[in-house]
Design a protein around this nucleic acid. Structure first.
Lengths: 107, 107
DNA sequence: CAAATATACCTTGACAGGCGAGGTATATTT
DNA sequence: AAATATACCTCGCCTGTCAAGGTATATTTG
């Protein structure tokens, strides 16, 4: 793991939203995807993930529904809302700007 | 202000160390420098700054001494230690890697 | 077949960093 | 005389991360 909690902080929600842009998904899957995508360099801890889901739902950025699995454990799916897409875009702009600014400040 | 507290978090110490690489400085000046460098887009709040100084000193990354001003308010200067330089370099590597990873995760 | 592992969900409470709000003191400007 | 600028500092709140714990089902392994 090379990304600290403090760097992670503030990106969690955007990372989740980004994933949901592609397709609806559920917690366990999102978690695995992130690890796979980053060659296990980055792991969203479960507690972090679920608290982020709560915030995103609260904010109206995602909606949730239960999957209709007949075998295996039940899955709670999440889908991004129109508001969520806007929030994602806004976040992306902020991030591009923040990167430049931080780079400046680190010389 | 375009950088949120959550994005800022985790960069404060590195930003301070980076400033001290150039030359010894003091709190008020560092604060002003950062605002100037970023066209007021970024401000390190005083409470944030001073608590970071405490942590950096605790960690042995900076040393502190009082300036010998004869007029005006006294100044507490900070200088970076050899350990601090190492920490800065380590941080820089992490940041370069984190940028790539976060970009990946945001697609 | 019992135990371990994988899939899948969730909560609680501790911790740490950012920062609003407040404070002190000196020098200059209005 | 009051306001502003320079310069320092502390207290306590807030919020996001996460360790540790829990539940339930299905599959693999010894």
């Amino acid at each position: 793991m090379s990304i600290t909690s403090d760097i992670l902080r503030g990106h969690t929600e955007a990372i989740i939203l980004s994933h949901l842009l592609e397709q609806d998904s559920y917690g366990y899957q999102i978690n695995k995807d992130i690890m796979r995508k980053t060659d296990n360099k980055y792991e969203l801890k479960e507690a972090t993930l679920y608290s982020a889901f709560r915030r995103l739902e609260q904010a109206g950025y995602i909606r949730t529904y239960w999957g209709n699995e007949t075998v295996g454990a039940r899955r709670r799916y999440y889908s991004i809302t129109e508001e969520g897409r806007k929030a994602y875009k806004s976040y992306r702009r902020d991030w591009e700007e923040a990167k430049v600014t931080i780079d400046q400040l680190l010389k």
